[in-house]
Amino acid sequence: MERARNASAARMSIDLQTVKKIASLARISVTDGEAQALVPELNNILGWVEQLGEVDVAGVEPMTAVIPNTLRLRDDVVTDGNVREKVLANAPQAEQGFFAVPKVIE
């Protein structure tokens, strides 16, 4: 069941519209020409990684930690902050202690 679903999902090849949708999700503006060029490129790569669908992964857990290790928790102590100059030092536009961006209408 699972393998069949994986394989069928992976067989889908992507078209120009999908490329544009991905670019928009990734917030990378692309011209029509660039998007067109990406269609075969991405299909090539995706077609190639698609071979993973043939691996029998029944009962296999997805990897979570490459080297067995569990999450450490730190103490609830204020050890940082009050470094506004450092935080804003590289800002393309900083005003009155804020980062400035084009006005957002919510």
Binding site: R74, V77, V78, T79, D80, G81, N82, V83, R84, K86, V87, L88, Q96, G97, F98, F99
Partner: peptide, 16 residues
């Protein structure tokens, strides 16, 4: 490790 207190000056309770 930045503080959580309410009402501080902008971007002062911010770590990298």
């Amino acid at each position: 490790g930045a503080a959580t207190a309410f009402g501080a000056e902008p971007n002062t309770q911010v770590s990298l």
